[in-house]
């Protein structure tokens, strides 16, 4: 029995419910518009969290090409700072805020899709999007220069792809989940919880469908690892010590696993 039959629902974008799709799109657009209000309020008064200082300084250092100085910054922040480093120093703050604002809005869309994926109900999806739009974490974090919102967006996107992949058993969702998950982990190491989520979803798949799509999960793991190391290796030339970057990541993982570096 397929997962979609087990969930007792139809694909969301069939021709029969095109009008319903348009209605949902309208609701989503209204929600995004509503979500902009607290975010713009927050953006107007946005402060500078303490980690932002590190990120901006790190981005400036990447831009200046000072490898020795860059090694003083924690390597697990480099991937996000690399994004900021595309901009001029005086524009980094604004660019970071815009990036997070965009990610915050996209996260609402992803949350809406997750709600629909989980429940199959448009109302639940709208409620999910509304909750994501008003979530204090997301409102605040989507207006300041922090890694959390881009990381969370990629985490949620990977989770959505895994949920959809486990339902439809299509390989491309696993591949997409691997890419998004790797980018999420590279931006923010805490997003490695995706592996935990993957294990639970796999267990759920086994419980519901009686089998695990090993091919899909293998693809997910392989793409995730490969993409992650590609990102990591692209950062290595920035460092003076080269593979010290890898060591820094390992220390960070150790910190999360055992609580001390």
């Amino acid at each position: 029995m397929s997962a979609s039959v087990a969930f007792g629902r139809e694909p969301a974008l069939s021709s029969r419910n095109r009008s319903a799709f348009r209605r949902r799109l309208l609701v989503l657009a209204a929600l995004l518009l509503a979500a902009l209000i607290p975010r713009l309020v927050c953006l107007h008064f946005a402060g500078v969290p303490r980690d932002t200082v590190t990120y901006l300084a790190c981005a400036e250092t990447i831009r200046s090409g000072d490898k020795e100085k860059l090694d003083a910054f924690p390597a697990h922040t480099w991937s996000y700072c690399r994004l900021l480093a595309f901009f001029e120093p005086q524009h980094m703050m604004a660019a970071g805020r815009m990036l997070n604002l965009l990610c915050g809005l996209l996260l609402i869309v992803v949350c809406r899709q997750m709600g629909e994926e989980i429940s199959g109900s448009g109302k639940v999806a709208a409620a999910t999007a509304l909750l994501a739009a008003g979530n204090p974490f997301l409102v605040e974090n989507s207006t300041v220069v922090l890694r959390d919102t881009p990381g969370l967006l990629l985490f949620a996107a990977a989770l959505l792809c895994l949920l959809r992949g486990s339902r439809t058993e299509l390989l491309r969702y696993y591949v997409l989940a691997g890419i998004a998950g790797a980018a999420a982990v590279a931006i923010r190491l805490e997003e490695a919880e995706l592996l935990l989520c993957g294990a639970l979803i796999a267990g759920y798949q086994k419980m519901e469908c009686g089998r695990i799509q090993w091919r899909g999960w293998f693809c997910f793991a392989a793409v995730l690892l490969m993409t992650f190391f590609v990102i990591l290796l692209s950062l290595v030339p920035l460092s003076a010590s080269g593979w010290g970057l890898i060591l820094d990541f390992w220390m960070k993982i150790r910190f999360h696993l055992w609580g001390s570096a």
Partner: peptide, 25 residues
């Protein structure tokens, strides 16, 4: 791992809010 502050709890919070949406079913 001792990271249960609000910022670090963003991922569980996301799932919490997703669950809240399902809760009204």
């Amino acid at each position: 791992v001792g990271l249960a502050s609000s910022r670090y709890a963003a991922n569980p919070a996301l799932l919490f809010f997703l669950g809240c949406a399902v809760l009204v079913e």
